[in-house]
């Protein structure tokens, strides 16, 4: 009954057609799942797309088995500081980072398999009052952190064996940086969104802060997920974690904005609102290419085509409870949908 109430009939077809359940994994030892991610892992010369699940005190690596089943390969036990999120490193193998902390991120750790001594290891990468962290191509990690006096924006390069090399600092803006996104197709460009709703652009090679552009009052509390440059414009995919259905016209969950970095002027390209009938707010989400997925306070997961600005699929809360996590598994077109009890469902989209 609950499912029927939350899923208007017009969305039923799209729900059935767009997402197909491929497999399910359940960590019976996990009491409270906090994050899930897909990662390339190689063992005995065989490279596979594996799944990493995190609960507050441990992180587990799962590999695909026959008949759509999953087997746990290894579990890293963490200390007393709870895991907050998994930080995937794009285009890497046998490496994944995690952020730990209480209310905010206090440290970032690297989890890895070392072929040097044939063992799974963990290594401390960074500590501090960390506001945002993102894995970059080329086995690098960017983070923003605050001391009493100033903000530090730093890039750390990680070696294959996990040892961190010398860091590089980027020129910090005055406002706190809350999220980062690499600019696709531009190796040396990075963007961030700040606490006062600005987009900042850096040159990664020189560390220069190139531009600060205000997102605009019609898109408050924006978090950047993706950026790419085309025809002299910088396109940025933003989410709005406070988006409500009642404000769906003026307060979308996701939007694409085109900025002219030369003039700092911008214009909205598309916006994606919460599907009708879903009371409440956007909770958290993920973007891959032109697809966005988000968990809503109704307990459902909604999927949007960002170029069309349309909701294309809907996963209502299942009999076991509400969804709590939605992550794209790259490079496959799969959605990882997680529940608090440690159940992760893999859907083909």
């Amino acid at each position: 009954d609950t499912v029927e109430q939350l899923t208007p009939a017009l969305l039923d077809d799209l729900r059935e057609e767009s997402l197909q359940l491929v497999s399910k994994l359940k960590d019976s030892s996990s009491s409270c799942a906090v994050d899930v991610s897909a990662v390339w892992w190689e063992a005995a010369g065989c490279r596979e797309l594996c799944v990493v699940t995190a609960c507050e005190s441990s992180v587990s690596l799962w590999k695909p088995l026959a008949s759509d089943r999953w087997g746990k390969v290894y579990t890293w036990q963490l200390g007393e500081i709870p895991v907050i999120q998994i930080v995937p490193l794009p285009d890497t193998c046998n490496l994944v980072c995690i952020a730990l902390g209480d209310l905010e991120i206090g440290e970032v750790r690297l989890l890895l398999y070392s072929s040097e001594n044939d063992s799974f290891k963990q290594a401390l990468v960074k500590t501090g009052n960390i506001k945002a962290v993102l894995g970059l191509k080329g086995r690098r990690l960017v983070s923003s952190s605050r001391t009493m006096q100033e903000q530090q924006v730093e890039i750390v390069s990680l070696s294959e064996t996990g040892r961190s090399r010398d860091g590089q600092t980027l020129m910090p803006p005055e406002e706190t940086v809350l999220a980062f996104a690499e600019v696709e197709g531009m190796r040396d460009a990075l963007v961030g969104t700040t606490a006062v709703n600005s987009i900042v652009v850096w040159n990664l090679k020189t560390g220069q802060l190139l531009k600060k552009m205000h997102v605009g009052y019609s898109h408050p509390a924006s978090i950047c997920h993706r950026a790419y440059s085309d025809s002299g414009l910088l396109f940025v995919v933003l989410s709005h974690p406070h988006a409500k259905e009642s404000e769906s016209c003026g307060n979308p969950a996701f939007c694409v904005i085109a900025f002219n970095p030369k003039t700092a002027r911008s214009t909205g390209v598309t916006s994606s609102s919460l599907p009708p009938g879903h009371a409440g707010r956007y909770l958290e989400g993920d973007v891959k290419d032109a697809s966005a997925a988000a968990v809503l306070t109704s307990g459902a997961i909604a999927v949007w085509d960002l170029l069309l600005g349309q909701c294309t699929a809907l996963l209502p809360p299942g009999p076991a409870g509400s969804w709590s996590l939605a992550r794209w598994a790259t490079p496959s077109a799969c959605l990882l949908a997680g529940q608090r009890d440690g159940t992760v469902c893999l859907y083909r989209y």
Binding site: T206, S231, N260, K262
Partner: peptide, 23 residues
């Protein structure tokens, strides 16, 4: 979106801003 809304557009915006910005 039109150029009149966004101002003059440059395909080399990244290189031009890098040349102008303080280092």
């Amino acid at each position: 979106c039109s150029e009149s809304d966004l101002g003059p557009i440059s395909l080399n915006w990244f290189e031009e801003l890098s040349a102008e910005a303080p280092s």
